[in-house]
């Protein structure tokens, strides 16, 4: 180690270069991006649901970033238009995810706007799709003999019900569903939005 100083300088330069390209430049590009018109901030209830979403690890299987038609048929899957930076203005940290074991959820509130459906699905995903590999979340629910006033009873298909009992959603489940329903970026993308322009479609058109 008779050239420690040049080595350290080189390592620092490489690190500084990477930080520049991966942190500073993107920050300068999108840091001042205003929220999209049509996007509203999360309510306290939705933020509690967002905390649930993070702690339950939903992000490991669900992305929140619909792609352009060049990259994936997300539009045809009903997952919504390609997202732009302004769509995430209130997401800190963003929950874009990297894995798509399950469907993309950035517009789940638009395509599945029913609270009752989400409660059933969270309680027992197999009640809806027998082949689903999503974990069930029974600890977000309570099984009671009778529903108290103000309780939200979870609907189950006839063959899945327990005789004489009702399944009631806990506040955590209601908050999580409120967050899921708030995921709705179906407003038009701002014309000036920073986006991925994808690949050239010359020749791709029929």
């Amino acid at each position: 180690m008779n050239r420690a100083l040049p080595l350290v300088i080189l390592a620092m330069t490489i690190l500084a270069f990477a930080t520049m390209l991966l942190v500073v430049v993107p920050r300068a590009q999108i840091g001042s991006e205003p929220p999209a018109a049509g996007l509203r901030a999360y309510s306290p209830e939705e933020l509690r649901g967002r905390a649930q979403y993070m702690s339950l690890g939903c992000v490991y299987c669900h992305s929140q970033q619909p792609r352009t038609p060049d990259q994936a048929p997300d539009g045809e899957r009903g997952w919504g238009r390609p997202s732009v930076a302004a769509d995430y203005a209130y997401d800190s940290p963003h929950l874009m995810g990297t894995m798509r074991t399950g469907p993309d959820l950035l517009n789940v509130g638009a395509r599945l706007p029913s609270t009752a459906w989400h409660l059933t699905h969270l309680y027992r995903p197999r009640a809806i799709a027998p082949w689903s590999i999503m974990p069930s979340y029974p600890f977000l629910f309570e099984i009671k003999d009778h529903a108290a006033p103000g309780d939200t009873v979870v609907w189950l298909p006839r063959e899945q019900r327990v005789a004489g009992k009702v399944v009631v959603a806990r506040p955590e489940a209601m908050a999580l569903v409120a967050y899921l329903l708030s995921l709705d970026r179906t407003y038009p993308a701002p014309a000036s939005a920073i986006r991925d322009d994808g690949y050239s479609r010359v020749g791709g058109k029929p």
Binding site: N107, P113, S114, W155
Partner: peptide
């Protein structure tokens, strides 16, 4: 209202059956 407290058509397809993104 849905059948026996189940999911209502209108919850996703809209009160006037107008649908929404993907529905």
């Amino acid at each position: 209202g849905g059948k026996a407290g189940g999911w209502a058509c209108a919850a996703c397809h809209g009160a006037a059956g107008e649908g929404r993104s993907g529905v």
